[in-house]
Simulated assay, not measured.
Amino acid sequence: MKPIIALTKGRLEKQFIKFLQSLNYEVEPIINKGRKLRVETDTFQFIFAKGPDVTTYVEHGIADLGIVGGDIIAEFQPDVFNLFPLPFGHCRMAVATEDGKVWPNQKKKIASKYTGITKEYFRNKGESVDIIKLEGSVELAPILGLADGIVDIVETGTTLKENGLVVQEEFFSFSARCIANRSSLKIKRDVLTPIIESFQKQEEYV
């Protein structure tokens, strides 16, 4: 039976396709999958999901391997083997505020969808903050007065700049990660080991 890989939809999906191509794996069925959420190639079965769901599928053994951002691992801390970083999906986690706005003296309000990472960051700084969880465009929160600042992923910084925000501090750099189901690594070792080893040949990836 072909190994099952849970793949994060969107940006990481596109970057992973290029990565597979560099390793000479078949990718045509993935590129032309349309709206399909399950696709099979000559080597793998793929399921496509949002980042947090990728970790859930791997944790529960629905998928043997997963491709997910390091931010998701840090935020949700799933019970999986966090095998190794991949040479794409590079981002930073940062605190940002409105350009020119001074932090208030009172307790700060911080908007983020990464509430766990945010709490840990400010706890390590010895600061108590009110954290407001948002799922969408957190850049709006300081502009509309909901929060004093945000904690979010920064890749190029363009979105922040276009919305009048500036980075105050970057505190966590990460890339895409390859994760594995704990049981699969034992039961399917003979099948998964060659694949994992091929993914680790990152010096071949440009």
Rank of each mutant, 00 (worst) to 15 (best):
K2Y: 10
I5Q: 10
A6D: 05
T8D: 03
G10C: 03
G10Y: 09
G10R: 07
K14A: 05
K14M: 12
Q15E: 13
I17A: 04
K18H: 04
K18G: 09
K18Q: 05
F19H: 00
L20R: 03
S22M: 07
N24Q: 09
N24F: 12
E26A: 11
V27N: 01
I30S: 06
N32D: 06
K33F: 03
G34M: 07
G34Q: 07
R35L: 07
E40R: 13
E40A: 10
T41P: 02
D42S: 14
D42R: 12
Q45W: 04
F46A: 06
F48W: 10
A49Q: 10
A49R: 12
D53E: 15
D53I: 04
V54G: 09
V54W: 11
T55H: 05
T55L: 09
T56W: 06
Y57I: 05
Y57E: 06
D64E: 14
D64K: 00
D64W: 11
L65F: 05
I67G: 07
V68S: 07
V68P: 03
I72T: 14
I72P: 12
I73H: 06
A74S: 14
A74R: 11
A74F: 05
F76A: 02
Q77K: 15
P78S: 00
V80H: 03
F81P: 00
F81I: 05
L83G: 07
L83C: 12
L83A: 05
L83T: 00
F88D: 04
F88E: 05
G89K: 02
R92M: 04
R92I: 12
A94E: 03
T97E: 02
D99W: 10
P104W: 03
Q106F: 10
Q106D: 10
Q106H: 15
K107P: 08
I110G: 05
A111W: 05
S112D: 02
T115P: 00
G116D: 12
T118R: 04
T118I: 03
K119R: 14
E120T: 13
E120Q: 13
F122N: 10
R123F: 13
K125V: 12
S128Y: 02
V129K: 06
V129Q: 04
V129A: 04
D130S: 02
S137W: 01
S137E: 14
V138S: 14
V138R: 13
V138T: 07
L140K: 15
L140V: 06
A141S: 15
P142S: 11
I143H: 06
L144D: 08
L146M: 08
L146W: 08
A147W: 03
I150S: 00
I153D: 05
V154C: 03
E155V: 13
G157K: 04
L160P: 09
K161T: 07
E162S: 10
N163Q: 15
L165F: 11
V166I: 13
V167W: 00
E169R: 11
E169D: 14
F171L: 09
F172H: 09
F174T: 15
S175K: 06
S175T: 13
R177Q: 14
C178D: 09
C178Q: 07
C178P: 01
I179S: 13
A180K: 08
R182C: 01
R182S: 08
S183I: 01
S183Y: 08
I187P: 11
I187E: 14
D190R: 15
D190I: 08
I195C: 10
I195S: 02
I195M: 08
E197S: 08
Q200G: 07
